[in-house]
């Protein structure tokens, strides 16, 4: 089984979000980048497929050279090869088109991406890859088993979950649950050394007419101070929630 894991290179979850150049660009100064959490769960699931079912795992990112340390980290965790499509990730649609090309050229059986990236939160790349490559697609995946060319997937739905069956080639939008937090792997010294020898191929982008574009960013207005209510006066809290906030 050939697996492609799509890796979005995102600001660490604790990052301060600021913008530059007239609020048109995300300010990366002092920001640590990491593998998008949803993708890290997917990558770990791919490692199990490699270890238990002999799968071959490639990771891919659409982005500039600055994303290579993130891809190297994925190699250190255990992926066999990495691909970087050399173009800035400006919008979800263009990224999906670039990745669809990678998927078609590589003939992958299973593509694992994340439910959403924590930077632009588009939640669109995996579904668009599926649409573009005409593959089966399951989003919000919290459990995945593959046997031959059939797959059983558990999908989170509002208020519960459902089990679906499908076949490869398959695209997954994954999230926590596909593996658990405690299953995540930290690269060890040997992994880091080996990662240096593994292929990281840079491919040039295809030409795309972008459908969408980011115009500018803006931050929510700072919040007013919290209103504190004494624990001895909870009637006041109820009063505030009822008469002022009007939520109960």
């Amino acid at each position: 089984m050939k697996i492609l894991v799509c890796i979005s290179h995102v600001p660490d979850t604790t990052s301060k979000i600021n913008f530059t150049a007239d609020n048109t660009k995300f300010d990366t100064s002092g920001v640590q980048h990491v593998i998008n959490p949803n993708d890290e769960f997917g990558l770990t699931r791919a490692m199990w497929f490699k270890e238990k079912q002999g799968a071959n795992v490639t990771v891919a990112n659409v982005g500039g050279p600055e994303t290579e340390p993130t891809l190297r980290k994925a190699l250190a965790i255990g992926a066999d090869a990495a691909i970087r499509v050399n173009t800035p990730a400006n919008d979800g649609f263009s990224v999906a088109k670039q990745l669809a090309k990678v998927v078609q050229d590589g003939g992958y059986d299973l593509v694992i991406a994340g439910r959403e990236s924590i930077d632009y939160n588009g939640g669109m790349v995996p579904g668009m890859i599926a649409g573009l490559t005409n593959s089966n697609f399951v989003n919000n995946c919290i459990g995945l088993e593959v046997d031959g060319t059939s797959a059983k997937v558990i999908r989170e739905i509002d208020g519960g979950k459902e089990t679906v069956s499908t076949t490869l080639p398959l695209i997954i939008g994954g999230q926590k649950g596909i593996v658990e937090e405690s299953d995540l792997r930290i690269p060890n010294m040997r992994g880091i050394m080996m990662a240096r020898q593994k292929p990281l191929t840079v491919v040039e982008p295809i030409n795309i007419e972008p459908e969408t574009a980011s115009v500018s960013f803006d931050k929510p207005a700072p919040k007013g101070a919290v209103k504190l209510v004494s624990p001895d006066n909870l009637d006041e809290l109820i009063n505030l929630l009822h008469n002022e906030a009007k939520v109960i």
Partner: peptide
């Protein structure tokens, strides 16, 4: 639209 998990807003243009 909301971006950066509610930490920012994005003005987003659709050309299609």
């Amino acid at each position: 639209r909301n971006a950066f998990t509610n930490k920012a807003f994005e003005m987003f243009q659709i050309n299609t």
